[in-house]
């Protein structure tokens, strides 16, 4: 069983980790780095609870080998908050009441963040399509979808504020 020493940037921090070949990215995050915000719901790429951003793209971290991630950049739910400010997707889903048990939430937030990165003004159909890989058993999705819409507005407003400046 080979060990691989890899360098990965996780939420902006450079980490040096020794990982066995068969360790998944999910296991590395949770077990090696104690970044337990990312959840394990099925280990088969179906539920989306383990979704993280790998080089800017959302992936099921249960289906990525840690060893493959040498040199990669990873964002987990713990990395969404920046400078003490919640990300618009966190803010939007929070305000819309899109959280119940919270177990799917980290994956949902990453998928939503990725959606707004590629499409800042998504339609309801876009949002639904972007979230089909994130199973939620509590909310019935209505408030998650509403939260992403709200996040898009929050992001838009923040951008305008940046563009036109205040003070």
């Amino acid at each position: 069983m080979a060990l691989h020493r890899i360098t990965v940037t996780i939420n902006g921090e450079v980490e040096l980790v020794d990982v066995p070949s068969h360790m998944t990215l999910l296991q590395m995050l949770r077990e090696k780095l104690a970044l337990t915000g990312t959840k394990n719901g099925c280990a088969a790429g179906e539920c989306g609870a383990c979704t993280v951003m790998l080089n800017g793209e959302p992936v099921n971290s249960c289906l990525v080998l840690a060893a493959e991630c040498d040199g990669a950049e990873i964002t987990t739910v713990e990395g969404l908050k920046k400078n003490g400010q919640l990300d618009p997707v966190q803010q939007g889903i929070m305000e819309a009441g899109g959280v119940q048990c919270g177990f799917c939430t980290p994956g949902v937030l990453i998928s939503a963040r990725a959606l707004l990165d590629r499409n800042p003004t998504p339609s309801e159909a876009d949002i639904k399509a972007a979230l089909v890989g994130n199973l939620c058993r509590c909310t019935g999705y209505f408030r998650i979808i509403e939260g992403v819409k709200r996040a898009a507005k929050i992001q838009e407003a923040a951008k305008e504020e940046m563009t036109y400046g205040i003070g």
Binding site: T38, Q90, E95, V99, P106
Partner: peptide, 21 residues
Amino acid sequence: MPRIDVFEKVTGAAVYTDDIQ
């Protein structure tokens, strides 16, 4: 009223059994 557990849950800080080290 907003949920009192929501901030923990959107930041990944909420602790579930499998998260305890």
